[in-house]
Write a protein that binds this DNA or RNA. Structure first.
Length: 428
RNA sequence: GGAGAGGUAUCGAAGUGGUCAUAACGAGGCGGUCUUGAAAACCGUUUGCCUUCACGGGCACAUGGGUUCGAAUCCCAUCCUCUCCGCCA
C-alpha cells in the first residue's frame, strides 16, 4: 500500500509504475483516488469546523450551567442543535469515502525497484546467476514419486483416501530425509545469526489482509469455519504479523528470524503435468527466513537472504540459479523478488524451490509496524525468503543424488541428521 | 466452557458526565546544572494521526454503536489480556 501523500504528489510515478507492471486497467484508479482524497479533505475541513464550533459552545454551556444561567444555556444548546444535522450529514459521508479510498489504495501496486526488469509475465523473468554445473547423467532419472516408491517412501493412495488429492504420506527413509533437511536448514540459519522461531500456524483476518493482497488471499488461504482464523500459507504470515501494531526501538533492528511451520495452500488454478506428486500440494513444511529492518538496509538484506538459500542448496551439491521476477510477474506488494531454482536433471531445466522478496514498507504500512528513532518514527521494511521447503527440495535432492545403481547418496552435511547414513538403498 | 478483574502516551499507572487529556504521578528518552569523568541529585523537555503555505483546527482512552449541548467516565454489542475453576496434548 502506498502513502496517500506520495500518490497525491507523484501521480505520474504511480501511473508509470502501473504501466511497467502491465496493469493498465488500474490507471484510472489513480485519478479516481486523488479525486476521492480531495473530496475527503473537503468534507473533513467542513466537519472539523463544525466540530470546533460545537466544542466551543459545549464548553460555554458547561460554564453557564455552573453559574446557574439555565435560560442562556438553553439558547446555546439550540445553536448547537442547528448545526447537528449538517454535521451528521458530513459524518455519514466520511466513513464510506475513507473506505473507498482504502479499497483502491489496497489495489494500487507498490513502486517497484528501478533495477527490476520490465516484462509482462513469468516468461520474461531474467536469469541472474547460475551456481554449480547442471549435470545430466547418462542414465534415466525417473519421476520423483517413482524414486520415492523404490524406497517405500510415499503413499499417495492412502493420502487420497484420507485427505484427497494434494496430500501425501511420506514413509521411512524419505520421511526421515524430509525431517533431516528441515533440521539441517534450521541449524544452517541459526549458524548465520538468525533467531529460530516456531510461530502460530493460524492467524486472524486482520493479519491476513496486512501481509497479502486480496487476490492472493482468495487463492491461497484456508479459513477455519466459525472462527476468525486462517491456516497460514507460509510462516512469513505469522512472522511478519508478530510485529503488528508494534513500535520497535531502532536499536533492536534488524530483526532476523528463521521459522519452521507447516504451510497450507488452496492452490486455486490450473495444474500442469509437472505438478503431480509432491510438487504442488495443499500442505507442506517449510523453513523460512524473515527480516524487519531500516529502509536503507533492505536492498542489502535482500541480497543476503537469497544468497543464504543458494548456499544451503550448494552445500548439498544441488545446482541452482537465481531468477529475477520481471515487473509483470511481481506481486503487487513487492518491490523486488528473486526465485531460487534448483536443477532438475530429469526435466533438464531449473524449477522453483524458493522465493525471496523485498516488500519495502508495504506490509509495515498495512500492519502499522513502526520504528522509534531519535528523530521521529517511520515504517520498517520487511523481507522474506524460503530457506527450504522439503517436498520440492526432495525432488531436487533425489534427482541430483540418484546413482546409476538406484541408490541415493546422502551429502555429508545431512548425515548427522540421518543417523550417519551415507547412502539410501532401494527396497525394490 | 464457567466466574472474576482489566484494556488510557514508549512502558507502568491515576482519572467514574464539563475548566485534572495541553493525560496527574512514576519510569524511560532528549537537553542542561553539578563533576576530572561517571553515577546520584536537581532543572527543563518529550503522544500519535489527519488537515492547513501558515496561524490554527480536528480525531484517537481496546473496537463499533447509543444516550447527552458535552462521554475515558453512563448504556448496548464485539474483541483481546490476566487470575481462578473445568477440560485436555
Amino acid at each position: 500500500m502506498l502513502d496517500m501523500k506520495f500518490l497525491r504528489e507523484n501521480p505520474d510515478i504511480v501511473k508509470q509504475n502501473i504501466k511497467n507492471k502491465f496493469q493498465d486497467e488500474k490507471l484510472p484508479m489513480v485519478d479516481e483516488v486523488i479525486a476521492l482524497d480531495e473530496k475527503r479533505r473537503t468534507i473533513q475541513q467542513e466537519a472539523d469546523d463544525l466540530r470546533n464550533r460545537k466544542n466551543i459552545l459545549s464548553k460555554q454551556i458547561g460554564g453557564l450551567m455552573k453559574e446557574g444561567k439555565k435560560e442562556e444555556a438553553e439558547k446555546v444548546k439550540a445553536e448547537v442543535a442547528a448545526d447537528a444535522a449538517r454535521l451528521a450529514e458530513l459524518e455519514a459521508q466520511e466513513g464510506p469515502v475513507a473506505d473507498e479510498i482504502q479499497k483502491i489504495m489496497y489495489v494500487i501496486p507498490n513502486i517497484i525497484d528501478p533495477s527490476v526488469p520490465i516484462g509482462k509475465d513469468d516468461s520474461e523473468n531474467v536469469e541472474v546467476t547460475k551456481y554449480g554445473e547442471p549435470v545430466v547423467p547418462d542414465f534415466e532419472i525417473p519421476y520423483h514419486t517413482e524414486i520415492m516408491e523404490r524406497f517405500d517412501g510415499i503413499d499417495l493412495d492412502a493420502a487420497g483416501r484420507v485427505a484427497g488429492n494434494g496430500f501425501y504420506y511420506l514413509m521411512g527413509d524419505i520421511a526421515r530425509l524430509h525431517s533431516a533437511v528441515i533440521s539441517y536448514a534450521r541449524d544452517f540459519m541459526i549458524d548465520r545469526g538468525f533467531t529460530y522461531c516456531v510461530p502460530p500456524f493460524m492467524i486472524r483476518s486482520n493479519v491476513v489482509t496486512g501481509v497479502m493482497s486480496f487476490a492472493e488471499m482468495d487463492a491461497m488461504m484456508y479459513k477455519i469455519e466459525g472462527e476468525d482464523l486462517f491456516l497460514i500459507g507460509t510462516s512469513e504470515h505469522s512472522m511478519i504479523g508478530k510485529f503488528i501494531d508494534q513500535l520497535i526501538e531502532e536499536d533492536k533492528l534488524p530483526q532476523t528470524l528463521t521459522s519452521y511451520s507447516p504451510c497450507f495452500r488452496k492452490e486455486k488454478g490450473a495444474h500442469g503435468i509437472e505438478e503431480r506428486g509432491v510438487y504442488r500440494i495443499h500442505q507442506f513444511e517449510k523453513q523460512e527466513m524473515i527480516v524487519v529492518c531500516k529502509p536503507e538496509e533492505s536492498p542489502m538484506w535482500f541480497d543476503k537472504l537469497w544468497q543464504n538459500t543458494v548456499d544451503l542448496f550448494r552445500s548439498m551439491d544441488i545446482p541452482v540459479r537465481t531468477l529475477e521476477c520481471c515487473s509483470g510477474d511481481l506481486a503487487d506488494l513487492k518491490v523486488k523478488s528473486f526465485d531460487v531454482e534448483a536443477w532438475s536433471p530429469r526435466q533438464k531445466k531449473y524449477f522453483e524451490v524458493g522465493s525471496c522478496s523485498n516488500l519495502g514498507d508495504a506490509q509495515a504500512r498495512r500492519l502499522r509496524i513502526r520504528v522509534n528513532a531519535k528523530d521521529g518514527k517511520y515504517f520498517a521494511h520487511t523481507l522474506n525468503n524460503t530457506v527450504v521447503a522439503p517436498p520440492r527440495m526432495l525432488i531436487a535432492f533425489l534427482e541430483n543424488n540418484l546413482c546409476a545403481d538406484g541408490s541415493v547418496k546422502i551429502p555429508e552435511v545431512l548425515r548427522p541428521y540421518m543417523g550417519g547414513t551415507e547412502r539410501l538403498i532401494p527396497k525394490h
